[in-house]
Amino acid sequence: MATLPQPPMPVVWRSETKPHKFCPGCGHPLVLKALGESIEELGIQDKTVFGCDIGCSLLAWDFFNLDTVQAHHGRVTPVIVGLHRANPRLVGIAYMGDGGGYAIGSQHLVNAATRNEKIMVLLVNNTLYAMTGGQMAPTTLPKQKTETSPYGREPETTGKPTLGPEMIRAIAPDSAYVARGTVSRLPQLKRFIKKGLENVVSGKGFAFIEALSLCPTNWRTNAEETWKFLEQDMHGYFPVGELAPEKGEE
């Protein structure tokens, strides 16, 4: 039988679990595409452990040909920290959403960053709790309508959206790598993820990458409005780029 050209999936992706479980137009698989290509290019597949959280991120539990663990909500950071401490040869990746990282799991994220744990945290920000139907999250934008903010988020009573990478940069040592990427600039996001993984593999320190993502299902947007919400509203509030340590520290 003649061989047909096959889809351009990263080698690390498990083809037998595709099509994957994410909704049409979801940003998670784009982040996981950038992550898969980075792992492949660095040649660290055999020593990487992938941990996913509760929420939509758990749909990645069978996504890769990697050792994978799925933890309780917000607890994937300490699980991966524990794995890495038990076997420092491992490259640990904690994959979570903004609800897991900035709400229920924020204490773990903050303390892992302060301790400069040698793991990479990859946090996907889609501005709401997607798996449970689109409730307001710490990252919901001002005036954004969700299931629990039907008149739009009111910063007076619910505060302003969390700026995660800025928070981590402020508390983590200088050797930590911190960046915010976006799925609308996938080559740049991949570069950030690769730098983060290199920071961890070389033993320099913690890596934290936030990826701005898409959720057309809960934003109730078509394809055009989906890109518009990401590129205008989200990029306007969450600045994309690497966060260098402030001069004069340490």
């Binding site: 061989t3 050209p5 096959q6 351009p8 994957h20 049409p24 979801c26 784009l30 996938l186 080559p187």
Partner: peptide, 22 residues
């Protein structure tokens, strides 16, 4: 690049010869 499902593969016509690889 932007397909979340890897459902699209583009091969430039000038690279047609390399298509047999899968």
């Amino acid at each position: 690049t932007v397909c979340p499902d890897c459902a699209i593969l583009i091969v430039p016509i000038k690279d047609r010869k390399n298509l047999k690889e899968s």
